[in-house]
Design a binder for these strands. Structure first.
Lengths: 192, 192
DNA sequence: CCCTCATCTTTACGCTGTCAAGATTGGAGG
DNA sequence: CCTCCAATCTTGACAGCGTAAAGATGAGGG
């Protein structure tokens, strides 16, 4: 039942956007009364957090899947993880907006959600350290470089799905091309 | 009257956050009936767009103000514009969220808002081209580099105010330190 | 003087999240 | 087998939201 509600919520977000994610709409889609969700989620924020959690798991999966394609080059793996980040956002813009939207924002209220997002960041951080171990990235403060890389792909993802770069950036191909170029510029700066 | 409503809206956003920005709350704060705002704004989205527009103007102002401090070094001016971007977000997090929030997102519905945000981007773009003219930045596709720089500072701003970098990144000093380091890494890559 | 138009108010509707109270149900203990 | 209980679901209600419709008010020009 909880899973059915979550599936309905994900479908609503995918089809109609974050604004349509409503407790009552989820209940309708699951063919239960408008109060039934309260027996599985404390309130609306908890439902939204659960949806966001699914999003972070999917993002992590797509990143892992993509970096498996180049097992030998640590630097390429690091770069591909960033491109996967942008690609995921453009392929699932509504879900991505929920993941970083105002209702799931305060990580205090939903600590497990914060853990899930930190795990995604840790994937990038681990790849970065392997790149450093492979003498391909400067040995400056690793955390600082990780935050910079995360900021770059996160901002690129956000501005792409907000249409700030024009319509060509909303296609997966266009977004990946931008991500490829952007990460390339950063890499030239990170190279030792 | 329109200005009074706008001021009330800005105050509500600043004090209570984007979620509290409500047509009725604005009307209450301005001591008019809950329908009065409709004579000055087509609907709630129009009010939100007007608030966002004020935000972009303030952002542009802070950027211009900050780059005036270093009139001689084009590259430093470019960098300072990015730091001002992050600084503005951390100093006005609620307003920043409205500027890129879902209600002001579709630039189609409010073309003047899109113009205002494009103007901010153009400031950075112009500084970039001056840096190129001063032989301090590679001559790759200027638009591409501009988008990369915008993405970096935008992502940094977003993740700072979302608390994803921890509490130390929510202070103006901490955020500026991060922005300084991040733009530095990118600059090493952009240098010819 | 009266008409007109812009501005503001009142009332009403459907939607939302959530509280409170009842109904159903399935399994554990006597 | 009966009873009780806890979990689950439903019904009904309330306040707050955005907004549509219609009435009030008041100033300016014929």
């Amino acid at each position: 039942m909880r899973q059915a509600l979550l599936d309905a919520a994900l479908e609503i977000v995918r089809r109609d956007g974050a604004a349509a994610l409503t407790l009552r709409a989820v209940a309708r889609a699951a063919r239960v009364s408008h109060m039934a969700p309260y027996h599985h989620f404390a309130d609306k924020a908890a439902l939204v957090a659960a949806v966001a959690r699914e999003g972070f798991r999917g993002l992590g999966r797509e990143m892992e899947e993509r970096i498996e394609r180049c097992p030998d080059d640590p630097r390429a793996r690091f770069r591909e993880s960033g491109i996967a980040y942008v690609s995921f956002a453009v392929k699932h813009p509504n879900l991505f907006r929920v993941m970083f939207g105002p209702e799931a924002a305060d990580a205090e209220a939903h600590p497990d959600l914060g853990a899930e997002s930190r795990e995604v960041f840790d994937v990038m951080q681990r790849l970065l350290q392997q790149s450093q171990a492979g003498y391909q990235v400067r040995e400056d403060d690793a955390r600082q470089i990780g935050l910079t890389a995360w900021s770059l792909v996160h901002g690129l993802a956000m501005l792409c799905i907000d249409g700030q770069f024009g319509p060509e950036a909303t296609s997966p191909e266009g977004a990946e091309r931008l991500a490829y170029a952007a990460t390339g510029a950063l890499f030239r700066g990170l190279r030792r």
